[in-house]
């Protein structure tokens, strides 16, 4: 068999479980064993592209197979988007269920690149966690989905892109004054949900409130970025204090600054 790209061969007793073969014979102890009744999912590995509970697979059943264990998920030391997601969203506490979770969710995303929250929770049926209550695990998967689906943010180095990136930098730094003074006209309007504000002072107040109550921790991905002579439009997946969400913005531009800013939540 190959395991994480490396060939292995051994003679084993027929009763040897794949989980024990990986952990004891190959010393790949990342895969864990938590029960004997195939409930907990700590032992999940990928066999021939499908996630399986290695405690319920005999090593001999994997003969000639292609295995991926947790040790093979990161590439050249770089964490995969799913692993990143678990870290960003605090989906790991004791870490014992984590290897099984990562492989299981990697399989989910591979088969269903845009899972709904209900589909993610259903997909976690075979993974037990006693630490996290699953909420941040779900968010981790959503983060990975957003990151995977938007591998390239923006290729062209345009003025519009630079303008947008300055916006984001100000917001993440919490520099509301800098944001509004530099990027908005004196009489700019901001239209969101069911209200409108006008003028720099009002905008500073509004953005300050936003940052305090909702915050902006990260822009995970930006797509559908379109720029014309007088407008910029984009959608973004963002991480805020409330978790992960999707927003859209339209900037109407005049002389390099925003005159009207429309925003909404998807």
């Amino acid at each position: 068999m190959t395991v994480n790209g490396r060939p292995h061969s051994a003679d084993v007793q027929v009763r040897t479980l794949l989980s024990d073969f990986l952990r004891e014979d190959l010393e790949l102890t990342g895969t864990k064993v938590g029960c004997e009744t195939s409930q907990c999912g700590a032992c999940i590995v990928m066999l021939n592209g499908v996630s399986v509970k290695s405690c319920t697979v005999l090593a001999v059943q994997a003969d000639g197979g292609d295995l991926l264990t947790i040790e093979g998920v990161a590439t050249n030391g770089a964490l995969a988007p799913l692993q990143d997601g678990f870290r960003e969203m605090h989906g790991v506490q004791c870490g014992f269920c984590t290897p099984g979770m990562v492989i299981s969710m990697a399989d989910l995303i591979a088969r269903n690149p845009n899972p709904t929250e209900a589909e993610i929770r259903a997909g976690l049926e075979g993974n037990l966690c006693r630490c996290t209550g699953y909420q941040n695990v779900v968010r981790a998967v959503q983060y990975a989905v957003a990151k995977t689906n938007s591998p390239v943010k923006m290729v062209t180095d345009t003025d519009a892109k630079k303008f947008y990136e300055r916006q984001v930098a100000y917001l993440i730094a919490g520099d509301v004054d800098g944001l509004v003074d530099n990027n908005y006209h004196e009489d700019a309007t901001f239209v969101a949900f069911d209200f409108t504000v006008r003028g720099r002072e009002a905008l500073k107040y509004q953005f300050g409130m936003y940052l305090r109550w909702i915050g902006l921790k990260e822009v995970v991905s930006t797509d559908k970025f379109t720029a014309t002579d007088d407008s910029i439009f984009f959608e973004a997946t963002v991480v805020t204090n409330r978790g992960i969400g999707r927003i859209f913005d339209v900037f109407m531009m005049r002389d390099g600054k925003i005159s009207h800013h429309f925003t909404g939540v998807k």
């Binding site: 790949l28 102890t29 998920v73 990161a74 870290r87 790991v92 984590t98």
Partner: peptide, 19 residues
Amino acid sequence: PVKRREDPELLRGDARFTA
């Protein structure tokens, strides 16, 4: 909300538990 330094090792499967 500082991100955890415990995570990379646990996520890679390198962290060792007693078993």
